[in-house]
């Protein structure tokens, strides 16, 4: 079991960093050089942060259950709000699915850095001997795991509640995973940004929603085709567009993340 060890090692790293802060800046270089850089070490350090997020979520059960309940509630409310017959419902279902995922994603993204900020953990992360943009990778990975768990549970619920054929599941899963990468890539950046503003929960949707419109649009269109009985080749062009946005969002956020969290 390598993760708990890693976690421990990371905590020691953080402690040392704090000690260095007390001793003064001149010795900071020393600690950095003793760590050196090699791939395995980076990987274990990076995974430690993701593991920390997963572990704290597994113990506190703060985010996933509440977001999950929220997702189901959104599905139920939309069902009543539209109240359409089965035929019209087929046209609306992709929209409901993606509205649910976007709202759920936003809720879970809002939490990621709020927790860090409240416990003063963000400062510890920043002084941690790890590059800033590597923190981005770790947090993105953590967010991706959370949202995937939420989607993995709500997607079957969705399929059952709206009487969708089971054969659409594989294609929906692929679309969902690809679109989730896009959400999370840009969402983690804006989540780190909004946590340092006065009205945290208000700022994230205002920044996040317009930017992810192309991803939502493509995902909705692809889902529509799937529900209309489309094949893999018919949704390929939409998947390409989503993939392009995933790459753009990941690269841009990776490059500018360090400016967002500096103290």
């Amino acid at each position: 079991m390598w993760q708990p060890e890693c976690f421990k090692r990371d905590m020691i790293g953080q402690l040392r960093a704090v000690q260095v802060l007390k001793l003064g800046k001149s010795k900071a270089g020393l600690v950095h050089s003793t760590y050196g850089f090699n791939c395995m070490k980076f990987l274990s350090k990076a995974m430690a942060i993701t593991w920390k997020d997963v572990l704290s979520e597994a113990r506190s059960k703060e985010t996933i259950p509440s977001v999950l309940i929220f997702a189901v509630l959104v599905i139920v409310i939309f069902n009543f709000a539209f109240g359409a017959g089965p035929e019209q419902m087929k046209l609306i279902v992709p929209g409901i699915l993606w509205t649910t995922f976007v709202f759920a994603g936003m809720l879970s993204l809002n939490r990621t850095f709020v927790q860090e900020k409240e416990q003063g953990c963000l400062e510890a992360l920043i002084i941690c001997p790890i590059k800033r943009h590597d923190i981005y990778i770790c947090k993105t990975l953590g967010n991706f795991i959370f949202l995937t768990v939420i989607e993995a549970i709500s997607l079957p619920v969705f399929v059952v509640l709206f009487n969708l054929p089971l054969s659409v599941l594989p294609m929906l899963i692929v679309i969902t995973i690809m679109a989730t990468i896009g959400f999370i890539a840009i969402g983690t950046l804006f989540s780190a940004l909004s946590v340092n503003t006065k009205a945290r929960e208000m700022v994230l949707p205002i920044l996040f929603l317009p930017v992810v419109v192309p991803v939502i649009l493509s995902a909705v269109e692809a889902s529509k085709l799937v529900l209309a009985g489309g094949s893999w080749s018919s949704i390929a062009s939409w998947l390409q567009i989503i993939a392009a946005f995933d790459v753009i969002f990941l690269v841009v956020s990776y490059l500018i993340f360090e400016y967002v969290i500096e103290e």
Partner: peptide, 30 residues
């Protein structure tokens, strides 16, 4: 239009003005 509006708005909501400039720059790039 919405992103540019957000870019101007994010300056106002940041905890301090220099932070606001950095955030606006990040939104400006996006």
């Amino acid at each position: 239009w919405l992103i540019l509006l957000a870019c101007l708005m994010v300056r106002k909501v940041a905890n301090d003005p220099s932070r606001g400039s950095i955030f606006a720059a990040v939104v400006g790039i996006v």
